[in-house]
Structures are given as structure tokens and as C-alpha cells.
Simulated assay, not measured.
Amino acid sequence: MYIKKILLTLVFIGLVAAAFFGYYVYTVMFKPNTAFNNETAYIYIKSTDTYTDVREQLKPLLKNIDKFDALAKRKKYVNHIKAGRYAIKNGMNNNDIINSIRSANLPIKLSFNNQDSLEKLAGRVAAQIEADSIALLNAMKNKDFLAENGFNESTALGLYIPNSYEFFWNTSAEKFTNRMLKEYNRFWNGSRKAKAKAIGLSQDEVMALASIVYEESKQPSEQPRIAGVYMNRIRIGMPLQADPTLKFAAYKLPQYQGTIIKRVLNVHKAIDSPYNTYKYVGLPPGLIAMPDISAIDAVLNFETHKYLYFAADAKRIGYHKFAKTLSQHNANAREYHKYLNAQGIMR
């Protein structure tokens, strides 16, 4: 009888211990452990992060970080950190969280447009992925990479076709440039290459002219007409006389750093630069800004006409008036200059 009581007591203790252990396992693994109100929280784990770094990001998001630690050690996550962007959904338990941050790296939508230099592009991209702007700029300017793929520092900006792309957040600078090269080659499909050949321009020349067209007008409806003006000038050997190229050349000079040129003057036309298309015939050596896809296609599909000139339209800001003769152009230009004077814009 005495032994039976002992056995019953031991069984009871075992059941209590099992129940306690089961509850502990439940609270550690399966009990919801999130402490935020939003539907989803995101953490960004760098390639150099340790478990301590990850823990610091998780701590304000969890009710009990110690129980998370216990399971992370048990599942050996503490020694196998994976870089990336991860989602933690409200109501997740520790087991779900560890599974998410270990294997569910989420891509981001990376976008860029209208950057006028590799430096600005590097800064724009660095704000969206792990790679910093210095690493990105070094990769973008890597002479071996550029030479191997038919680019130089003047044409390098043309490699980056403005759009939205899907990337993993922890993408390195080198992986970014390699991916952009693939996107560039995909963009320049057989149809676009054939059109470039048909109009007598290389891909680099198309991009350079598209950058001018885009800086002249952000209106897709008139970009093909502006491209047609420049193609007419190229055809007859007339200087492009593109004001945006003068601004680009000026901004390279110390006296124009930090300024905004709102009105092109004769002093700008005297700048000695290969980008001065008043002084030198033909296309400049590279892009003056990142053109939109609409401007690139506008060059490839330029409007056939007899216009040789265009001037900003004072009555429709953002649009232009086109002319076949210099006298008509001068009349259009005087009308716009009168508008600038009335606005007090003298330089």
C-alpha cells in the first residue's frame, strides 16, 4: 500500500512536470510573442550583423525577448544569421518568427529616374538597399567593368534604364551593377537596336540625344518632335545648340557650383567644353542626365518634319513652339524672353 502511494505520487509529480514542461514549450515556441499594433513589422539584417544586432531590432517588437533567445539558441539561429529584409506579422510566435527571419528574405521594389550623375544615382540607390553610396559609386565607375561592357565614364549613366526593379535588400554594389547590365541588354532588344541602326546612331548616341530631349521637355507628347528637330540639325551638319548641354557644362565649373541657371546667356555659350553644343557640332561625348524611357523611344521613333528650331511657349509653360525658319524662331524666342523679363528672370 505504501509503495503504491509512492508510485502514485511519482506519477503525479511526473504529470505536473510534464504539464509544466509542455506549457513552457508552448510559451517558448507557440504562444504569440509580438508587441506591436501594426499588421506587419519589418527588420533589415545587414551582411555584417550578429545575433546581438538582430536581437536589438527584435527587442522592441517582442513581448518576451528571453524566451525568443531560448528558442533561437535551441534552433541554432544565433550562429546562422541571414542578411535581408524580413517580415514579422502581428500574432506570430517565436517559432514562426525564427522561420521567417531565417528563410523568408523579402524583395523590395527599387526605383530611380532623372538622376543627372552617377553620384546622385548612387545616393538614390543606397537609400533603398544595403550597399552604401561609396561602394555603389566605385562599382559604377569601375574601369574594367565599363571597358568590358563597352562603356566609359561619360556614357556610364546610360547603363541605368530608369524604372522599378525587384531586388533583395542585401544586394551588394557589384550585384547591383551586374543586374543593371542585364536589364540594359534586355531593354536594348532587337527592335530598338534595329531602329538605332536605321537612324544612323549608336546606342550611346541615342542615349546622349535622349538625355537632351528629356531635359528640353518632360512632355512625352512632344518629345518625338523635339528629337526630330535635333535629327534634322544632325543631318545638315548644324550645331545642336541645345541649352541643357550648356547648363551641364556650366555646372562643371567652380563658379556655377550650387547655382541654378534659369536663363541661358551669351556668357554660357562661350564655355569651352565638349558639351557646349553651340560651339561644337554633333552630339556631346555622353549623357547630360538620365533620360526617361519615353525620351529614348522618342529618339528611336522621332517625328519626321522640317522644323529646325523650337522655343519655350510662354502661354503653355512646359511646352514649345516650333519653327522652320530662323525669323519665325526669333519671333517665338522674343515672346518667351519677354515673359522671362516680366517674371524677373535675368539669369
Score class of each variant (00 low, 15 high):
residue 1 M to V: 04
residue 2 Y to C: 05
residue 3 I to W: 04
residue 8 L to I: 07
residue 13 I to R: 01
residue 14 G to A: 08
residue 15 L to Y: 07
residue 20 F to N: 10
residue 30 F to L: 11
residue 34 T to K: 01
residue 34 T to Y: 10
residue 37 N to I: 14
residue 39 E to L: 11
residue 48 T to C: 10
residue 48 T to R: 11
residue 54 V to Y: 02
residue 55 R to L: 14
residue 57 Q to R: 08
residue 59 K to S: 07
residue 60 P to N: 09
residue 61 L to E: 03
residue 61 L to K: 06
residue 63 K to Q: 12
residue 65 I to A: 01
residue 66 D to Q: 08
residue 68 F to M: 03
residue 84 G to N: 00
residue 84 G to L: 03
residue 88 I to K: 01
residue 89 K to G: 03
residue 91 G to D: 10
residue 91 G to N: 03
residue 92 M to N: 06
residue 99 N to R: 10
residue 99 N to S: 13
residue 99 N to D: 11
residue 100 S to P: 02
residue 102 R to D: 07
residue 103 S to T: 14
residue 104 A to V: 08
residue 109 K to Y: 02
residue 115 Q to C: 08
residue 115 Q to L: 12
residue 119 E to N: 09
residue 119 E to I: 10
residue 129 I to S: 02
residue 137 L to A: 07
residue 139 A to H: 13
residue 142 N to D: 11
residue 146 L to D: 05
residue 149 N to C: 00
residue 150 G to K: 03
residue 161 I to Q: 01
residue 161 I to V: 14
residue 170 N to K: 12
residue 171 T to L: 13
residue 173 A to C: 07
residue 175 K to V: 04
residue 177 T to P: 02
residue 179 R to C: 06
residue 181 L to T: 12
residue 189 N to I: 05
residue 197 K to H: 15
residue 201 L to P: 03
residue 202 S to V: 15
residue 205 E to R: 02
residue 205 E to Y: 09
residue 212 I to S: 02
residue 214 Y to L: 03
residue 224 P to D: 03
residue 226 I to Y: 08
residue 237 G to Q: 15
residue 243 D to H: 04
residue 245 T to L: 01
residue 250 A to I: 10
residue 260 I to S: 06
residue 261 I to L: 01
residue 262 K to T: 05
residue 263 R to P: 01
residue 271 I to A: 07
residue 276 N to K: 07
residue 277 T to W: 06
residue 278 Y to H: 06
residue 283 L to G: 04
residue 283 L to W: 05
residue 291 P to E: 05
residue 302 F to V: 10
residue 304 T to S: 11
residue 313 D to P: 00
residue 315 K to T: 15
residue 322 F to W: 04
residue 324 K to S: 13
residue 330 N to H: 05
residue 330 N to Y: 02
residue 331 A to K: 12
residue 338 K to G: 02
residue 339 Y to W: 07
residue 345 I to H: 09
